[in-house]
């Protein structure tokens, strides 16, 4: 979260810098089968974010020590490509990427039917090739599309979206400029058919009322995004 400053990001009519209203999300496109050698894959653009996700498996879990006798494990690796950010991202170990990988894995393990594949692993590689704001949401949403494309059984799809606060106003889906001046960020992973949650983070400063508003924006947006995911998965198959 950046500073507060005097920068006015929303005009008196509630219109944001890129012309959106408070509840509007950025444009989204989803395409499956973009990594032809993978079992399943997805490219998702969301504003100027772009994620490519490939799914491989189920395959034997290596190394042995990660194997579980009663279920499969997900091997999730979230990574930002060196050219995905304004200042070049140095390849290699990165604490932020490790954390995002972990919370993404925890979210997806809640819906993938792991018990069907003892001792196996399913590899999910999330590559952010262009980052704007909200890449963890893009990664998680795209990963659930790629898993469906790979034929991995899941009880629900996960839709991830964030709301935040700028100039003391709660808005949905912050873009890069808004994120720079944002005062709070609430990313959630939502199961759109039931409204249940599998992923939740928050940082910043929100009153109880603002928090409720942000929560509601995310719930509403998840339904809209889910439609785009369903269309993509329906359009790309025989």
């Amino acid at each position: 979260m950046g500073g507060y400053g005097d920068v006015q990001m929303i005009d008196e009519n509630g219109i944001r810098v890129d012309g959106r209203g408070p509840a509007d999300i950025r444009p989204i496109t989803i395409e499956t089968g973009v990594v032809p050698v993978a079992d399943g894959s997805c490219r998702m653009t969301w504003g100027t974010n772009e994620a490519i996700v490939a799914v491989y498996g189920p395959m034997e879990a290596h190394p042995r020590k990660i194997q579980r006798q009663d279920r499969a494990v997900l091997d999730v690796a979230y990574n930002m490509a060196p050219f995905s950010t304004t200042d070049r991202m140095r390849p290699g170990f990165n604490r932020r990427s490790r954390e995002v990988s972990k919370v993404t894995k925890d979210a997806l393990e809640s819906v993938v039917m792991l018990e069907l594949y003892p001792r196996s692993k399913i590899r999910i590689n999330i590559e952010i090739v262009s980052a704007e704001a909200g890449t963890r949401c893009v990664g998680l949403t795209a990963a659930s599309v790629a898993l469906a494309d790979a034929g991995i059984p899941m009880t629900e799809m996960v839709v991830s979206v964030a709301s935040g606060k700028i100039n003391d106003i709660v808005v949905c889906d912050l873009n890069k400029e808004e994120d720079n001046y944002g005062e709070a960020d609430l990313p959630m992973g939502i199961l759109p058919n039931t409204g249940e949650l599998v992923f939740l983070q928050m940082d910043g400063d929100l009153s109880q009322d603002e928090f409720k508003q942000a929560w509601q924006y995310n719930m509403d947006a998840s339904k809209e995004i889910h439609k785009i995911m369903v269309d993509a998965l329906r359009g790309n198959s025989s």
């Binding site: 990594v35 490939a54 690796a77 590689n125």
Partner: peptide, 18 residues
Amino acid sequence: CSAEVRPVAGRNWEAGPP
């Protein structure tokens, strides 16, 4: 110039140092 082949690109490519 640096090239990275990460596991996303194929079943046989593994994570870790280049």
